[in-house]
């Protein structure tokens, strides 16, 4: 039996796994984005610049911590189940987003911020109209990293009973069923690539063309 035959015969079960996988990643990415963006904005305020730099250092180093370690650690606290995976993925996803948001916002030139203030923008307008658009490229890059990592790590999360497409691969590996391994692999790779392509597309429409022109 090949992978496509497997998919055809087991579609209801497989589609449930796809839904689980996407659900896990979706919830985790949304949580990471909200937390990462909010924290990144707070620590990049001029008064908190020292905190911001410390956060950049910490998140920079934290990206060297393997994602599996975070899942394993969460397992110690919350045991088996999808909750463990979602919490671990959310925490792990915050790191690249927070790193990119805070470093990009801290890189917005002070002159530009002052020009915006000098023209009569309120602090919120400066943030929304100037700072975030200038940082958008980097924010989107952080988001893409988080999504790629989460799709990948969610597969491994199968070992803590989180469900998702990892289940198909693991079962395939343990009972030596190449068709299952291939089917799971194909699906998870497609999700990873398609979500990245989708985000690249969103990135192109969100980021101003003016920023990609070499200065």
């Amino acid at each position: 039996m090949n992978a496509f035959q497997y998919l055809g015969r087991n579609w209801p079960g497989v589609s449930a796994k796809i839904a689980q996988h996407l659900g896990m990643v979706g919830v985790a990415v949304a949580a990471s984005l909200v937390v990462g963006l909010a924290l990144g904005i707070v620590v990049s305020r001029p008064r908190l610049q020292k905190v911001g730099r410390a956060i950049i250092g910490i998140t920079g180093a934290a990206q060297a911590v393997p994602s599996v370690a975070v899942i394993a650690l969460m397992f110690v606290y919350t045991g088996i189940g999808p909750r463990t995976a979602v919490i671990a993925l959310s925490i792990y996803g915050v790191v690249p987003i927070l790193f990119n948001v805070s470093s990009a916002l801290l890189l917005v030139p002070a002159d530009i911020r002052e020009a915006a203030r000098g023209m009569g923008m309120t602090p919120l307008q400066v943030l929304v109209r100037v700072e975030l658009p200038l940082a958008s490229q980097s924010i989107m890059a952080g988001l893409r990293t988080a999504v790629t990592i989460d799709v990948s790590t969610a597969t491994v999360a199968s070992v803590v009973g989180a469900g998702g497409l990892g289940d198909i691969i693991f079962i395939g590996l343990s009972v030596v069923r190449p068709d299952m391994i291939m089917a799971g692999t194909l699906l998870v790779a497609s999700i990873a690539i398609l979500s990245d392509v989708l985000l690249a597309f969103i990135q192109r429409s969100v980021v101003s063309r003016g920023l990609s022109i070499p200065s």
């Binding site: 597969t155 691969i169 190449p178 790779a189």
Partner: peptide
């Protein structure tokens, strides 16, 4: 870059099949 987005477990599993 495309290869890079493929989840690691998937690539490992793929190679298990391919190298069998």
């Amino acid at each position: 870059s495309v290869l890079f987005t493929v989840p690691s477990l998937a690539l490992f599993a793929l190679l298990v099949v391919a190298l069998a």
